[in-house]
Simulated scan of single mutants.
Amino acid sequence: MLFNEIENFQIVGLDDVPRVIVATEPIGTEYVTSLLTRGQQDLREGDVDSIVTKSRTILESVFRQILDDHNVVYKSDGDIGKYRKKVLDTLGMSVKSDWNPRVKTMVSSLNKLVDTIAEMRNTDGDAHDSAIRIRLTIAGSELLLNVSASLGNYFIRVNERQKS
């Protein structure tokens, strides 16, 4: 069997089973920065619907990357609440009863932010039509985008510390 990495093709014998090789870049802070930059352009253009989608995409992508990094099995169903729980367990960030009460409050608040961002995508974003949809203001959209980017980068950095 021959494999040419430069041309990205594979020649196999008649009795060999072909393999699909997908080269992807891992999700990292550069990815978050690129979505943040595109989201800032959307802000300038007033496209708040796109910002809701990008904000949720940041978190989902980061969580899935962390789970993949640690070979954690998960159902690929877009439920970032489930992804978040698995990430917290994987990174040892699940709330413990012996933690400082302020730290427990902070982690609980992070969890609530993630849940709220997911909910906003489902009810206020452009991916689903909803009778109760409320269009966000530019200021609200900017907050949503910046919080998502900050959370994404935070989880990436915790994961990087865990891996090293």
Rank of each mutant, 00 (worst) to 15 (best):
E5P: 15
I6L: 12
I6H: 08
I11K: 09
L14P: 12
L14Q: 10
P18T: 06
R19H: 14
I21H: 09
I21L: 14
V22I: 15
V22M: 11
A23R: 15
T24N: 05
E25M: 10
P26I: 05
P26F: 04
I27D: 01
G28K: 00
V32E: 01
T33L: 08
L36H: 00
T37L: 04
R38H: 06
R38T: 06
G39L: 02
G39Q: 05
Q40P: 05
D42Q: 15
L43F: 14
L43G: 04
R44P: 07
R44D: 15
E45A: 14
G46V: 12
S50I: 04
S50M: 13
I51P: 01
T53S: 11
S55W: 02
R56W: 10
T57L: 03
I58S: 01
E60L: 02
E60T: 03
V62G: 06
V62F: 05
R64G: 05
R64T: 03
Q65N: 10
I66K: 03
L67I: 12
D68K: 15
D69Y: 11
V72E: 12
V72S: 02
K75L: 10
K75R: 08
S76M: 09
D79I: 14
I80Y: 00
I80Q: 00
I80S: 00
G81P: 01
K86S: 15
D89F: 13
D89Y: 11
T90I: 11
G92E: 13
M93N: 04
S94D: 13
S94W: 05
K96V: 09
D98Y: 06
W99P: 08
N100F: 03
N100I: 04
P101H: 06
R102M: 06
R102A: 10
R102Q: 07
V103W: 03
V103S: 05
K104T: 11
S108Y: 06
S108N: 13
S109D: 03
L110I: 05
L110M: 11
K112N: 09
K112I: 07
L113S: 11
V114A: 00
V114Q: 00
A118L: 00
N122P: 11
A127S: 12
H128R: 08
D129A: 14
D129C: 08
A131R: 05
A131H: 13
R133N: 08
T137G: 12
G140Q: 15
G140A: 13
N146F: 07
N146E: 06
S150P: 07
S150Y: 11
S150A: 14
L151Y: 01
L151Q: 01
G152F: 02
G152T: 01
N153D: 12
N153F: 02
Y154M: 08
F155K: 02
I156R: 00
R157V: 10
V158E: 10
N159D: 12
E160G: 04
Q162S: 15
